[in-house]
């Protein structure tokens, strides 16, 4: 019953949200905040595939998002100089290309790394994120360097979609596609293989799970989702430039996933909504309390995220809205028997 209500809410509320928000004072601004939250939900769900479902820490996640955004910008407009041969694509043609570019990059990074221990992936992806940013900043001919590139709005049947609510529905469509595909894959044999790998890689391999390939699938899927969201981000902002794809953003999204519940779809939605909306709420808090002025949380934001990560891992690693299976994995003593069948020291 609870799940039913939740599901209905997840469909109805986002559908009618623009109408509600636009009725409020500063409606356009409120709608923009809602879009930011939804964007982070989409990114959180994607990162959750890699981190939560397959248990792989991807610290270059935002670089895949950046690849999607830049691929969209370049395919629609071409680069500043030599790259003018590119360009001229419509937005709708650029979207699948952006997904493919990000997914392919994921394949290239994951292929050599995923054969090794999980820790290496964290470092390699961290390094990949740095290279991606360096490239965006320095490859002037393709990315226009630090000045960034302008991106036009999408056109549908000859109409330019520039209003906030029109963009909102494109994003909502993407989010639903992402949620639907992640849920289905997770319920398939691939999802069960992910669970098996999380619990015990060796046992999974002995039971016929192709461990590197199954991990690679999760990693590439996460990257492709980031690419899809990136292609939306490019047209929503109308502008792409390197600072949007900083490591800090990966940390932000990871904090959302950790807070809401690693491996849990409703949890990630909650975590993303909480952390994306929090700065906006805190900003207006002194005003609401009649103190006047604004409280800018920005300088303390990262400190809060870091603290949240450490505290959650120490006390509630399953997150605020945990996945039932995941909770059992993380609290072996509570359910009587350890899911990995041992109480032994894992060196």
């Amino acid at each position: 019953m609870r799940a039913m209500i939740l599901r209905v809410l997840m469909v109805i509320v986002p559908l009618i949200l623009p109408a509600l928000l636009l009725a409020l004072p500063q409606g356009e601004y409120q709608l923009d905040v809602a879009m930011t939250v939804l964007l982070y939900v989409a990114l959180g769900v994607g990162l959750n595939v890699t981190v939560g479902l397959a248990g792989l820490l991807d610290l270059g996640y935002i670089a895949f998002f950046g690849l999607g955004a830049y691929a969209t910008a370049i395919l629609m407009h071409g680069g500043p100089a030599q790259a003018e041969a590119l360009g001229g694509w419509t937005y709708w043609m650029a979207v699948p290309a952006a997904v493919a570019v990000a997914g392919f990059a994921g394949l290239l990074i994951g292929l050599p790394t995923l054969r090794l221990r999980g820790d290496y992936l964290a470092i390699v992806t961290l390094a990949f994120g740095q290279i991606a940013k360096l490239t965006e900043n320095n490859w002037d001919a393709l990315t226009n360097g630090p000045q960034g590139m302008e991106v036009a709005k999408p056109v549908l049947f000859g109409f330019e979609l520039r209003a906030g609510w029109q963009l909102y529905y494109i994003l909502l469509l993407f989010v639903w596609i992402i949620l639907w595909s992640v849920r289905n894959v997770n319920k398939s044999s691939v999802g069960r293989a992910w669970v098996a790998i999380r619990e015990d890689e060796i046992a999974a391999a002995s039971s016929g799970v192709n461990v590197p390939r199954t991990k690679l699938l999760a990693f590439v899927m996460g990257a492709a989702i980031a690419g899809l969201v990136g292609s939306f981000f490019a047209v929503k902002q109308g502008f792409v430039s390197p600072p949007s794809f900083d490591f800090i953003e990966t940390v932000t999204i990871l904090a959302m996933v950790v807070l809401g519940g690693i491996g849990s779809l409703p949890g990630v939605v909650l975590g993303a909504a909480m952390l994306a909306a929090l700065p906006e709420l805190l900003r207006s808090l002194p005003d609401m309390l009649g103190l006047g002025g604004q409280f800018d949380v920005t300088p303390y934001r990262m400190l809060l995220y870091g603290t949240a990560m450490v505290l959650m891992m120490a006390w509630r690693p399953e997150g605020l809205l945990p996945d039932a299976h995941r909770r059992a994995e993380l609290h072996p003593d509570a359910s009587g028997e350890a899911p990995d069948g041992s109480g032994e020291v894992r060196a």
């Binding site: 248990g55 870091g306 603290t307 891992m313 993380l330």
Partner: peptide, 19 residues
Amino acid sequence: LRHSPRLSLLITALGLSII
């Protein structure tokens, strides 16, 4: 966290460095 899954340790380590 010595007996926790490796992912928890990695996330804690990252959180600490950010702090």
